[in-house]
């Protein structure tokens, strides 16, 4: 916040060499942040295409980028319905992870007994690889979607639980004392002090969980294998692999990666919007 008034109109701006250098560095960084990754992408695609053409690699081993793109267009109906299935599982798992993670974190925070009893099992669930648990879940849970969501949830909920728990414990000590002095109830302390304190931690966990729930969904689909009805992208990748339709494998992979990027970007944006007014992580430094 600058309380200094702008220089009167018409007066020449006072700019020294430092200012000019800094302005140029800022401009280069702003453009470079977008331009460089795009340039890398273009070069990679070009090299990929040339390698395929020059070495006359058959399409059932490595299709060129053009073939992948064509497949993406041709098979769009099938691929996008598969994408919707995967997306549905991912979103359900993420929603369940938020509910479960935050709910458990609040329970842990409110009851030390509860935390001591159940925290070790939350850790055990987290450290056991989902690929190892998934086949069992497939056996015991009849509903296919529910089974997949459960697998993805197992992967995704822990970062939210761990981060939110940390956040709820990290409220400023003087503020805690102040709340005590002013006779705050447990509920008031939770609502007005601990939950706002935990918000940045929760959002960091949410960003990790967003990516993990997609990974969880894809891994679970792989384990579930053949399905026919309601098959997601992972199933399409497996199926295309059996048929040596490598181009479709790449196309499906592209969709999975794109989905991951969009989830991450969306959650980062959400985090920025919620924190931009007050949290250090979302503030631009003036100089």
């Amino acid at each position: 916040m600058s309380l200094v008034e702008d220089p009167p109109a018409g007066a020449p701006d006072i700019v020294d060499a430092d200012e000019v250098r800094r302005a140029r560095a800022r401009r280069i960084e702003r453009i470079g942040k977008w331009l460089l990754p795009v340039a890398v992408l273009v070069v990679m695609i070009f090299l990929w295409d040339r390698i395929v053409v020059w070495n006359a690699i058959p399409h059932y081993i490595l299709p060129g980028p053009g073939a992948v793109f064509e497949t993406l267009i041709e098979d769009r109906a099938m691929l996008f319905s598969a994408l919707l299935v995967t997306l549905q599982i991912t979103m359900l798992a993420l929603a369940a992870a938020v509910l479960g993670g935050v709910g458990l974190a609040i329970l842990f925070n409110q009851s030390r007994w509860f935390e001591m009893s159940f925290y070790p099992y939350a850790v055990i669930l987290q450290v056991t690889p989902v690929v190892a648990i998934a086949p069992l879940i497939m056996i015991y849970v009849d509903n296919r979607i529910a089974a997949l969501v459960l697998c993805a949830w197992l992967v995704a909920f822990f970062p939210i639980l761990a981060n939110t728990t940390l956040g709820l414990h990290s409220a400023d000590h003087n503020l805690r004392d102040l709340f005590r002095i002013y006779g705050a109830t447990r509920w008031q302390r939770l609502r007005y002090l601990q939950i706002p304190s935990a918000l940045p931690y929760f959002l960091a966990g949410l960003r990790i969980a967003g990516g993990l729930s997609l990974i969880g969904a894809v891994v679970a689909e792989f384990v579930a294998g053949t399905g026919g009805m309601g098959s997601g992208l992972a199933f399409r990748i497996l199926e295309a692999g059996y048929r040596l339709n490598i181009a479709r494998m790449f196309a499906a992979l592209l969709l999975v990666a794109g989905t991951g990027v969009i989830i991450f970007a969306g959650l980062s944006f959400l985090s920025h919007m919620l924190l931009r007014k007050w949290h250090e992580s979302a503030l631009k430094r003036d100089r």
Binding site: L178, I181, Y182, P196
Partner: peptide, 29 residues
């Protein structure tokens, strides 16, 4: 509880709340 006001060495304000909301806090509780 209303008999006591406290000022610590640090300002101890809630960073997510505006100035008015911070001052409102003891009454809100």
């Amino acid at each position: 509880v209303g008999d006591l006001g406290v000022v610590f060495q640090e300002p101890t304000l809630m960073p997510w709340a505006t100035v008015a909301q911070n001052v409102w806090m003891p009454l809100r509780l």
